[in-house]
Design a protein around this nucleic acid. Structure first.
Lengths: 149, 149
DNA sequence: CTACAAGTTCAAGTGAACTTGAAGTCAAGG
DNA sequence: CCTTGACTTCAAGTTCACTTGAACTTGTAG
């Protein structure tokens, strides 16, 4: 039932490389106990945690952000369904924002590049609250950043 | 009309840093002529090219991929609307795929994490033709990669 | 003429997310 | 006992997309 898994087993089952698992542990995203041998021992629940990490990455969160999310899980007991869904609830918003941006880009492609609007002066696809544009180097006006200030 | 722009001007108008513009030039994404002084001179059309690059990045293409796309533009004459829209036509498909993936992730979040399906054994959100999963390190079964082989 | 901003090249640094390599330990089969 | 494979740590390397810094030249305003 609560059988313990070795790192290779976890890697095989999750599709995440052993080196990545060690890296995640170093970053505090997952934990393990050690056998007398020094080998890592993972509880089965780590698989769901890893699944969560991979999901989150696909959505666009950085490992730091994911760590913050995972920290919200209860430390004293095994997280239940409600715990997990509380975390993922916020993501839905995020996914929707990203989808909205892609829709904007799509219409920008047909409308702006097609019509020549991409000369930038006239084209401003409004895009507030965008994480990547905010974090990334260099403002990109027509992606959403305001031209001045 | 066909006034030439200096790098600072292009940076200001496009929101892309001068250093990035030099980098793009080095990578063959944009071109410039030189003044007697050695300073770069850009034609106005570079702005649309840069806009295209930024759009493409937001969609998820790498600079290498963008270079390939830009190479499809006619070299002998100024690209017209049809040229640009030919390039962007393929992106629409790509954007749609990415949106579809996000929709899958979204339902995976509510359905799988919520119900515990994220134990990985049962959860396989089918996702063929995914660039990032294919390029990225480590297979992620429940994102789309087949579990074996 | 003197500042100073803006341009130049080239090498090296950054950060995210890992991977790879070296050098060694542990566990299981024959 | 020996081999083989899986594990360990630690440091360094990789890719992407740039940025930063050093050292220098050009253009413009006063």
């Amino acid at each position: 039932m609560a059988e313990l898994l070795k790192i290779g087993e976890v890697a095989r089952r999750s599709g995440v490389a052993s080196s990545a698992l060690r890296f995640y542990e170093e970053r505090g995203l997952i934990t393990s106990t050690r056998e007398g041998s020094g080998h890592r021992c993972y509880s089965r629940s780590v698989l769901r945690r890893i699944a969560f990490i991979v999901f989150a990455q696909r959505i666009g969160l950085t490992l730091d952000e994911i760590a913050v999310e995972l920290d919200k899980l209860p430390g004293d007991r095994a997280p239940n369904r409600r715990d997990w869904s509380r975390l993922s609830a916020q993501w839905t918003t995020r996914i929707d924002q990203r989808i909205a941006e892609l829709e904007r880009l799509k219409s920008g492609l047909t409308e702006c590049i097609g019509c020549g609007c991409l000369s930038l002066d006239r084209c401003t696809l409004a895009n507030p609250n965008d994480r990547v544009a905010a974090r990334g180097p260099g403002a990109r006006f027509w992606i959403g950043d305001p031209p001045a200030g």
